[in-house]
């Protein structure tokens, strides 16, 4: 069950936004299970200290096996294409060779929580998807305005410190709904 983030305590450092972290694992018979039934709420947080507290007890993405995802979204935004904050937007997708997931995820979420993207209210959340071959990092934003998405890309390149020639692809959620490729973030069938 969802629990809202506690107020930052005395001496804690508040974040610009509250966030919630979710976990999902594909079940054996996933075809019949709705996407959001697999989404497990882990915790919400409102300060830097609360974040590190939670982060230190959850397993690092690179240490997990199978078909699993962490979703870190602003509180109030469900990690689904249909959410009002997401439905007109899209995501940057970065494919990562095995072994890079934990470091890149940490760099990405630190940049997001620390408001390093400088695109106003645009950022919705981030996802790390552990898969059998490459892992997939994605950063979701509200609109598909090209000035904004280019700025997000530039910041991603700077903060992720990716190997040269890493491919980055932008995909609008309406496209994802149409083609049903990439992993599904929806109940839409």
């Amino acid at each position: 069950p969802f629990r809202p983030a506690p107020k930052p305590g005395e001496g804690e450092h508040p974040l610009q936004y509250n966030y919630a972290i979710w976990f999902s694992r594909r079940s054996q018979n996933s075809k019949s299970v709705q996407y959001d039934k697999n989404l497990k709420f882990i915790a919400s947080f409102a300060s830097v200290e609360q974040f590190w507290n939670i982060y230190s007890y959850i397993v690092r993405p690179g240490d997990m096996s199978g078909h699993v995802d962490y979703h870190l979204f602003k509180e109030g935004i469900r990690p689904m294409w249909e959410d009002d904050a997401n439905k007109h937007g899209g995501k940057w997708i970065i494919r990562l060779k095995k072994g890079l997931a934990s470091r890149c995820w940490e760099n990405l979420i630190m940049a997001m929580l620390g408001e390093q993207f400088m695109v106003g209210e645009e950022i919705c959340g981030a996802v790390i998807s552990i898969r059998y071959q490459d892992d997939i990092l994605s950063l979701w934003n509200r609109s598909n305005d090209s000035t904004i998405t280019s700025r997000i890309r530039d910041t991603l390149q700077r903060v992720l410190n990716l190997p040269p020639h890493t491919i980055m692809e932008y995909k609008e959620h309406t496209e994802s709904i149409k083609d049903q490729t990439s992993f599904r973030n929806t109940n839409f069938v």
């Binding site: 450092h13 974040l15 610009q16 507290n53 630190m110 940049a111 408001e115």
Partner: peptide, 21 residues
């Protein structure tokens, strides 16, 4: 209003504070 911004090194520094455990 003013945005609350933290760079990577500040976040790493706060990771080691007693309140973060």
């Amino acid at each position: 209003g003013t945005r609350i911004v933290y760079d990577r090194s500040r976040l790493m520094q706060l990771r080691n504070s007693p309140l973060a455990r």
